[in-house]
Amino acid sequence: MATDSQLTIETALNVGLALLGWLYIMSRTWRWLGSIFLKQWKKRRKQELRQKALEAFYDAFELSRIEPGTTARIATKGDLMIVMFRQERAEKGESA
């Protein structure tokens, strides 16, 4: 068994190649984890924007004033009509 203290070129190349492989795997792992995080953040942000838009719509057209069983029609430009209907609440004895 030879105990050569010198670093041979083959050993250096093997260690370098192993290090490059490890760095590549780690970089792809962090990239994958970052993409998962960003997708979840984008999804949450999109839901928050929708909620804010719905609240603004609710406040702008005073939808809280709609009585149960009545309809509110909102005409916008471009021949678009939005119809809102508030359902009547079922009695406790009735099944929905």
Rank of each mutant, 00 (worst) to 15 (best):
T70H: 07
K42R: 15
Y24Q: 05
L7D: 01
R45M: 04
L13M: 08
L7Y: 01
A75K: 11
T76Q: 05
R50Y: 13
L80Q: 08
R89K: 15
D59P: 09
K46G: 01
A90P: 00
R50P: 01
L38G: 00
Q51N: 12
A12M: 09
Q47S: 03
A2R: 02
Y58C: 04
W32E: 11
L23S: 14
M81F: 01
Y24C: 12
T11I: 13
T71W: 05
A75G: 03
D79K: 14
T29M: 12
L54I: 12
L38Y: 15
E67P: 04
G16L: 07
E91A: 05
A18C: 01
L23C: 13
D59H: 15
Q87F: 05
A53P: 00
M1L: 14
F61K: 11
I74H: 05
G78E: 12
R31D: 14
G16H: 06
A90N: 03
A96E: 06
A60C: 01
L49I: 09
A72E: 03
R45F: 03
S5A: 04
L17K: 07
L49R: 08
T3V: 10
Q6Y: 11
A90W: 06
Q87C: 01
F61Q: 10
I36M: 09
I82M: 15
I74L: 09
I25C: 03
G16D: 08
Q47M: 05
E62M: 06
T8P: 02
E67M: 09
E10K: 13
R73M: 02
F61E: 08
S95M: 11
E10P: 02
S35G: 02
G16P: 06
A72G: 00
S95E: 10
E67R: 10
R44H: 14
I25R: 08
A56C: 10
Y24E: 08
L7S: 04
I66W: 00
K46C: 05
K77M: 05
E91Q: 05
